[in-house]
Design a protein around this nucleic acid. Structure first.
Lengths: 336, 336
DNA sequence: CTGTTAGCGCTTTCAG
DNA sequence: CTGAAAGCGCTAACAG
């Protein structure tokens, strides 16, 4: 008894009065079939409403399925969905489909999802890793699994990755602000567990030092994981004695919070603001940002997945460039 | 010769000195296995780095794979990604993974993707349909495939669907504007092929008529498929003789274009604006909108997919409510 | 040009 | 508690 009621290749073959293999050949568009036979099989397939079972086909071919996996923090987040769009585009060019999943920044869930996708025999995996260690994947990597990390490298695992040019972006922002006369620049960002935060923070300290304003660490405010806390931190900064004249927001959630704080605090309109990450309608709001192409991040990651590196090579790391877009808030000068 | 170098269940069984079936039982956590045997198998599996092949397992079970498909217009679009997030959440509760694809609003591509996902034997499919006919899926539906349309119903096919409360949202917007004294209200929207446009446009005409301002069709401007054309259309409207005192933007791209037009046209600050669809930072921009929960749309669609309707029932249609959020632009009164 | 014989890696009867 | 045999639906040699 068939488990599903669906017509099978065997059914088509029988109805057409040919062998299984011949039916297979026709339905796969292979050559060397008589036109008449071809037609008979086509008719039988149509009459039965036959649809080939790609799962069985993949299995028989013995290889991986035609699927790519993407483990993101949250697929509903526009940043990740832009990355997913980039991955999908490349996947499509290679005849692959994309399975998208969200781990909610939870290491345990990331690991579970990785396991499940691997069991599904995906062709490769793009992961935006949580801060947890990833050494448990070393064996998988050695076995030849195509694994690429996006936006940040995996802790404790030498694997291909593609990241944003964080240092370059932050340096550009700091230079922009100091060129406009700022010395007291605050850096407000996410939690220190987050790799991108640490990268950007380090670049900030370095750039400030280069600008002849060392000791900038004192202007660093971590812990703004959402717009609400960012707003509170910025408000605190601005209402304390000797407030900063400029804010460098480490990501778009912080930028949003900073924007709200600047609106609410008296004199906030005079405080300069540069945000890392562009966002929709930022031009209407006049917000100066450090922008980059998130879809490009996805495209490059997918390229790395589908393009095996030179055997036994060391991990490849690619960098997506950033550019500063002046729109107003970043060009405010400190009050004399 | 094995096609892949991966360890198989047979390999584990051999190494553990048990039969295939026993190894299977252990690795699937089935009961009735002696503790010692269980341990032996576990050890063998670990030593080999065994990972079960979920594809083969699904096939052997004869059913569909544990995958759900989502065919959207563009996964990089925040609206669709919010929907995807909702679908994924429900899918996860049912132990399913989500394959996301983008058809770029192209009917041929939508059809191709549908075929491919069906060949992959997905458990069910959520589709945001292009305007093309979908009668080719009638057989599939009859065969029991779980198919649900989201955001708009499929043309020419009686299938389950979940949509936004378009009439309610538009009526609320019109009532809001007329209550603030507006009579000359323009409705700017997408192309007439788009189902949501037609729904909203019809509701607009009805609501205007109800408000004692019939003949509103003359204030309707279709054809704004992107923010650029929307901006041009709104600029034309405002610079013509007897310009409208209020704009109802049919979707968020139109709202964006209208916003830019209002900024650029002299006196644009006095024109009221209500947009259908909420968007990030709309509050900072002070834009009054008709909002709804896109993730809820996805959740409900996924619910319909995993919950078979009463056999032979007529298609189920669900509606996601909207609500008007006043933020400033919608409360401007016409100049005396 | 067409068919036969083996599997892919796993699950399921149904006997021991 | 354990195993042998039969298949899921399809593809891949290798003959004819």
């Amino acid at each position: 008894m068939r488990a599903t009621g669906r017509p099978t290749l065997a059914g088509v073959a029988e109805r057409a009065g040919v062998s299984l293999k011949t039916a297979s050949r026709v339905l796969n568009g292979e050559p060397n079939v008589a036109d008449g036979t071809r037609e008979k099989v086509r008719l039988a397939a149509a009459a039965l409403g036959f649809r080939r079972n790609a799962v069985a086909a993949d299995l028989a071919r013995g290889g991986a399925s035609r699927l790519l996996g993407f483990i993101s923090g949250d697929i509903a987040n526009p940043f990740y969905s832009a990355v997913a769009g980039g991955i999908e585009r490349v996947a499509r060019e290679h005849g692959l489909h994309l399975i998208t999943t969200s781990c909610e920044e939870d290491p345990a869930r990331e690991r579970l999802l990785t396991e499940e996708l691997l069991e599904r025999r995906v062709r490769g995996l793009v992961v935006t890793p949580t801060p947890a260690g990833h050494d448990h994947l070393a064996g998988e990597l050695a076995a030849g699994t195509r694994l690429v990390f996006a936006d940040r490298p995996a802790a404790g695992l030498a694997a291909d990755s593609v990241v944003i040019d964080n240092p370059g972006g932050v340096r550009a922002a700091v230079r922009h602000l100091t060129a406009h006369g700022h010395r007291r620049i605050a850096f407000v960002g996410d939690n220190p567990e987050v790799w991108t935060f640490r990268e950007r923070r380090a670049a900030f300290a370095g750039a400030m030092s280069d600008a002849g304003a060392p000791g900038a660490e004192r202007w660093v405010r971590p812990g703004a994981h959402d717009a609400g806390t960012a707003r509170a931190l910025v408000t605190d900064l601005l209402t304390a004695p000797e407030p900063p004249t400029a804010i460098l927001a480490e990501n778009n959630r912080v930028t949003e919070g900073a924007l709200r704080a600047l609106r609410a605090v008296p004199g906030g309109d005079d405080v300069a603001l540069v945000g890392f990450d562009d966002f929709p309608l930022a031009d209407l709001l006049g917000v100066t940002v450090v922008a980059y192409d998130a879809a490009e991040l996805g495209r490059r990651a997918a390229d790395l997945v589908v393009t095996p590196g030179p055997a036994a090579s060391s991990p490849r790391t690619e960098t997506v460039p950033t550019r500063l877009i002046p729109r107003g808030t970043g060009e405010r000068r400190p009050r004399a």
